[in-house]
Amino acid sequence: MIAKASTIPHGANAIRYSVNKDRADIVKANLLPDDISPEAMYGRMMLVQKMFAEKINKGRPLGRNVIRIEISPSEEESRNWTMDDWVRLADEFIQVFDSIDLSQKTKRASSKQTNLKGSQYIVALHRDSKSGILHLHIDANRVDINGKINDSHKIGERAIMAANIINEKREWVQSKE
């Protein structure tokens, strides 16, 4: 399995892409209804950010306000999976992602851990890659439900580490950088 993550300034478009694709299914919505439009999902994320704007950024909006994660197990690893298997992978990935402490490496207290579990996010399963391999898209609010910013420093590295921890646990092939 491989994974990548970044923060993006175009959250509304990313969510629209994730859930409106012809060959996409919503796997899970966290702290969001799954039966509303992508624009409404993004709007609810922005309401949380606005609620905490003075606390988190002294009134200035976050430029990169959504965390975008893509997770792709190999075809062999995900062969014959049900939707429940994809839900379990998404939950496991988020739990591992949140548990990774990068504060020693970055020398930043904010890098201790993220709180995606306590953040609004949507997970969608895509069937549209050129290879035909199924993969997940996760679009998460940078601000959790308690008003704390999910740190984005070395977020791509955090995603790779999470993938490798899961690969080791499941005895899957390790990803390469």
Score class of each variant (00 low, 15 high):
residue 52 F to E: 01
residue 130 K to N: 12
residue 122 I to G: 00
residue 41 M to G: 07
residue 167 N to T: 05
residue 92 E to T: 12
residue 1 M to F: 06
residue 120 Q to R: 06
residue 153 H to K: 15
residue 164 N to Y: 04
residue 169 K to F: 08
residue 13 N to V: 14
residue 32 L to F: 01
residue 48 V to D: 12
residue 158 R to K: 10
residue 90 A to W: 08
residue 14 A to V: 09
residue 114 T to D: 05
residue 63 G to N: 15
residue 66 V to T: 15
residue 134 L to F: 15
residue 5 A to P: 00
residue 72 S to W: 02
residue 99 S to M: 05
residue 94 I to W: 04
residue 61 P to T: 10
residue 173 V to A: 13
residue 129 S to M: 10
residue 135 H to R: 02
residue 26 I to D: 05
residue 166 I to F: 05
residue 80 N to E: 15
residue 171 E to F: 10
residue 57 N to Q: 09
residue 41 M to H: 00
residue 106 T to K: 04
residue 168 E to K: 13
residue 29 A to E: 03
residue 17 Y to V: 01
residue 32 L to D: 03
residue 90 A to D: 09
residue 14 A to Q: 11
residue 142 R to A: 13
residue 24 A to T: 11
residue 56 I to E: 08
residue 167 N to D: 02
residue 6 S to Q: 12
residue 90 A to R: 02
residue 86 W to R: 05
residue 147 G to A: 12
residue 37 S to K: 09
residue 34 D to Y: 13
residue 30 N to K: 06
residue 126 H to L: 06
residue 125 L to G: 03
residue 166 I to H: 00
residue 63 G to M: 11
residue 61 P to F: 10
residue 86 W to F: 10
residue 99 S to F: 06
residue 174 Q to S: 14
residue 169 K to P: 01
residue 61 P to M: 10
residue 116 L to G: 06
residue 79 R to W: 13
residue 161 M to L: 15
residue 70 E to D: 14
residue 17 Y to F: 11
residue 177 E to D: 15
residue 83 M to C: 13
residue 15 I to N: 05
residue 105 K to H: 09
residue 152 S to K: 06
residue 163 A to T: 03
residue 137 H to G: 08
